[in-house]
Design a protein around this nucleic acid. Structure first.
Lengths: 174, 174
DNA sequence: CCTAACATGTAAACTGTTACATGATTCC
DNA sequence: GGAATCATGTAACAGTTTACATGTTAGG
């Protein structure tokens, strides 16, 4: 994030909240200790950037930090992928309840993705905070992947809810 | 999982590994203490099911456990959704490296989803472990959502990789 | 005979969150 | 004057994983 224009820990937190948070979150309590650790290991360098009495520390990547970042990008180690989704869990175990309950579950699942999509769409285009930060092209491509994923989730949830609502091959109505 | 046919802690772990693990994982070290906790609170009931000298404890849901499960399914509390994906993070920060590195990143991202898809497809159909366990219809629908998500990820990653490989509007070839 | 699968458990370590604590500055 | 935002930090807690520890049984 420092490489993409963030200077302070506060900046980093804000950047994460509007960009990576759909596939990686952090809390403030992690950031400040981590900045100290990174500075101690020489990957970033901080300088005092206090404005008047408000204290502030501005960091930049050191050449070694930049190298380490590039190495990490091309490291062949398997990239861990973890999902923890209570909504999916509820759908999985929905046989315990009624079909109506399950349709409700799927509706909520879908609504969640639709809401996420709205926020993701808002980040697209040249006037968004993401584009204006001049971060490069890859953050926007990551955004596109996020949109594709939530679009797929919303669509398939809608499909399934409809199928449950009207069971297949009704045996002679009336 | 006890409701879907698992009896022992070992059964639960196996069931998780072949079904929910794409949206919820657990380790063995969580299961056995949790089974004790659930038994203490009266939601499940265990009996000794040792076979010869091999000790084994078989659990079933109590009526109260069943009620609690159904309540959980219909509880209106927001369902937390967390993703932690190192591959997405690398794509997001790929401006730090070369386009070739990014294409490689996307290829691996895609391959990961394709591999996951193979395992998910293997669980579909009437001869799969999932279907044979007679768990009901919702586990299969959850599976369908997983397939849709990974299908979308693999497809969009392929698209993007192709776009980077051949930049748009080439200015007079040769 | 040996390996894989069945089966249960604990201790230590690690990661991350929530809540708390403090204070400055800007904008309405 | 008050709320929102900028800004940094710590302590306690919760949740989870890794590594260890142990023993049985079935099948090649």
């Amino acid at each position: 994030m420092l490489r993409l224009g963030a200077e302070s820990g506060y900046d980093v937190k804000r950047a994460v909240d509007i960009s990576t948070r759909f596939f990686w979150t952090i809390s403030e309590a992690q950031i400040y200790p981590m900045l100290h650790t990174l500075e101690d290991s020489g990957l970033i360098e901080g300088r005092d950037a206090s404005q008047g009495r408000r204290k502030r520390r501005a960091y930049v990547l050191t050449p070694e930090g930049e190298r380490t970042l590039v190495q990490w990008l091309s490291s062949p180690a398997p990239d861990s992928f973890e999902v923890r989704d209570v909504a999916m869990l509820k759908i999985f175990f929905a046989d315990a309840g009624s079909d109506d309950d399950a349709v409700e579950l799927l509706a909520r699942f879908r609504a969640r993705s639709e809401e996420t999509l709205e926020r993701l769409y808002a980040q697209q285009g040249p006037s968004s905070e993401l584009a204006e930060s001049g971060a490069g092209k890859y953050p926007e491509l990551a955004l596109r992947i996020g949109i594709a994923v939530h679009r797929a989730m919303a669509d398939v949830a809608g499909e399934i809810a409809e199928e449950i609502g009207q069971p297949e091959a009704p045996s002679a109505p009336g």
